[in-house]
């Protein structure tokens, strides 16, 4: 089930796309967007990763099973990042524990 072929024009187009994305992420860093900067940069690099994987590494030509592996790998990174980021984001959710040193046993 070969659905697509990586041809030279496609390679050129994706190369240009990668360059444009690189400039985009560089440019966005000059806008001074603060917190959002990180997410924009990460988003752009995810897109670039997939371009490299599917075009330059010829994943579009592969069977679904092989593509599934890459998707699973990506989901694992998502898992790592989500549960890790959930930690600092939720650190102040509960009222702070009473400091035992402040009120020793009566």
């Amino acid at each position: 089930m070969i659905s697509a072929h990586v041809t030279t024009p496609k390679l050129v187009v994706s190369w240009i796309a990668l360059l444009v994305l690189t400039f985009l992420s560089f440019g966005s860093s000059l806008l001074g967007l603060g917190e959002a900067e990180l997410f924009i940069a990460l988003g752009i690099s995810v897109v670039k990763t997939f371009v490299v994987l599917f075009i330059f590494m010829h994943l579009v030509e592969q069977r679904f099973a092989n593509r599934l592996i890459v998707i699973l790998t990506f989901l694992f990174i998502v898992l790592l990042v989500t549960l890790t980021v959930a930690d600092p984001l939720t650190r102040k959710t509960f009222p702070p524990r009473p400091d035992p040193a402040a009120s020793p046993y009566p």
């Binding site: 898992l79 549960l83 959930a86 930690d87 600092p88 984001l89 939720t90 650190r91 959710t93 509960f94």
Partner: peptide, 22 residues
């Protein structure tokens, strides 16, 4: 096995929420 790593960090400053999930 990939969803449980936080149980090593209960007293390392992990948030209570994450600790409960893990």
């Amino acid at each position: 096995g990939f969803f449980t790593w936080g149980h090593h960090m209960f007293v390392a400053g992990l948030s209570e929420f994450d600790a409960g999930v893990f």
